[in-house]
Design a protein around this nucleic acid. Structure first.
Lengths: 152, 152
DNA sequence: TTTGAAAAATTGCGTGA
DNA sequence: TCACGCAATTTTTCAAA
């Protein structure tokens, strides 16, 4: 298990919200020098605590205003191949196998209701997937990144 | 509406997956100069197509190995205040009001099943929230960022 | 960890297609 | 309008202490 001190967590909390500030700027906030921040960030990346840096896009502005979650029921448990098919669909952002009254939960983002319907049709055609239940997002009230667990 | 050409979409596709490469490196891939890339990225940020850059953290390594989705039923429609209470809970990563057989869908990440139970208790205590159904993630098979819609 | 310096990347501006 | 080259500035990165 990786141990994170107070400063590590503070750095992670800031970077998970916005990774733009320079090391010098972070140093100012944490009362440390830029190289000290750099060393820690480098270590956190090496340890895999920070997986990667990414740009968050505006779904609507890149042509995908419709966000939805889809519960999928499966007929068998060997759906590994079917999950591979799902990954090739670029509108699918997340795939999780879950415990509960459905087997799988997808997060998808499409251009409109038509493309959502097309996507659901594709899912139904994939072997092993029986029923789907869709939840169209009306308003996304909060979307933030994973933040480190504080204290402990 | 913002119009994106082929190069914009390529830049967005790359940055949404990994924003670490330098402008020079991006330029090499797109056969453009670093300043040209810079101009476009700057424009995309100004237009709000790129909302921000963030660090993606490993949930387990920051002390939150348990990922779950929670459907919440509400007794009334004036839950704006209640949503505010939800936002203050740091384990809650996403809040969406949805159309379907439940009113709201949450994405949460906790330390263990106990803290998940504690979180669900807190949700039940919030005014206007009646029933919850939880789906604990067994395996996250795919987690990627929004990517731009291709062609069109 | 910090200081200091070298290397690299970012950014602004002027030019030309 | 858009991309490029050049150059100034800032940031990153690597030493040594």
């Amino acid at each position: 298990m990786i141990k994170l001190d107070e400063k590590d967590r503070k750095i992670l909390a800031i970077l998970s919200e916005n990774s733009s500030p320079s090391y010098a700027e972070l140093g100012r906030q944490l009362h440390m020098s830029a190289p000290a921040i750099h060393d820690r960030v480098k270590r956190l990346k090496n340890e895999g605590v920070i997986k990667k840096m990414v740009a968050k896009l505006d779904g609507a502005k890149v042509g995908k205003p419709l966000l939805a979650f889809i519960h999928v029921d499966t007929s068998s448990w060997s759906v590994t191949r079917s999950i591979l098919s799902l990954k090739s669909l670029s509108d699918v952002e997340e795939i999780h196998t879950v415990a509960g009254d459905s087997a799988m939960l997808l997060k998808v983002r499409t251009q409109d209701t038509q493309s959502l319907e097309g996507l659901i049709e594709k899912i139904h055609k994939i072997d092993g997937f029986t029923r789907t239940r869709s939840y169209i997002v009306l308003t996304p009230h909060l979307e933030r990144e994973t933040s480190p667990l504080l204290d402990k």
